[in-house]
Amino acid sequence: MAESTAPRVRTGRRPSTYLLRLIVTGYLVLLVAWPVFLVGRNAFADGTTDIQAILDDPDIVHALQLTVLVAIIAVVINTVFGVGISILLVRYTFPGRRLLNALLDVPLSVSPIVVGLALVLVYGGRTGWFGPTLQNAGIQIIFATPGIVLATVFVALPLVIREVVPVLEEVGDEQEQAARSLGANAIQTFRRITLPAIKWGVIYGVVLSLARSLGEFGAVKVVSGNVLGQTRTATLVVEEKYLNFDRGGAYATAFLLALVAVACIIVVSVIRPKDQR
């Protein structure tokens, strides 16, 4: 510890370091901290009346509940599949591995609104490629909760994977091989060795996915149908209120959304041990 902090203190005295810090801090304040702070301030412009009004409106409470429910389902799905796909990518070689790897970046690079439209094309109840079949079986995807979950899963898909893959690569597979040679089967090895080793990568991925899932707007807007009290999520409430000149309500809802996401990230950064990452 002592050796690693000593040189840092020394470089900290150089003026160029201070300048660099100032620029980075200023940039982050102007771009992130100050705007987010203003959302909070606007939310409390009239004291707690706006927040209270939102929490008293059953439709908005429903929207908030729906958002949380969808986010939790999406995070669970993305975590299970994310960890599975990460292990597949890092521990196995198979034809098409690089293609899969490239494909996993699509959700991050394509606009969410395109994602929404694409899902409608496949699962749309009347004209979709797959939708009518499901519709006949009594399952509605688009303009219903499953569609919102699907869209949210899609946009947040790579986040767990991108956190877990580097950790898996770094820990290597020797510990897993040692566990196997000591008699552990695949499941025991995963639970006792792999999972503890990648724990922090998974937790960080979950938090990022949760934050992303709570805040998804574009894809959800296309697939949800935006029906008040049924398929309207919190982000759609924000837009609706904003467009209807209910600024206070919009900021209050936005504040709640941001609060949950920021809180997650802060909690994790605080509890995460220092030597990890």
Binding site: Q175, Q177, A178, R180, S181, G183, A184
Partner: peptide
């Protein structure tokens, strides 16, 4: 599979469960 062979394996880089 390795877990059914009852062999002890020691790796060059220890492979300690960290």
């Amino acid at each position: 599979p390795p877990q059914k062979r009852n062999v002890g394996f020691v790796f060059q880089h220890y492979a300690a469960f960290k």
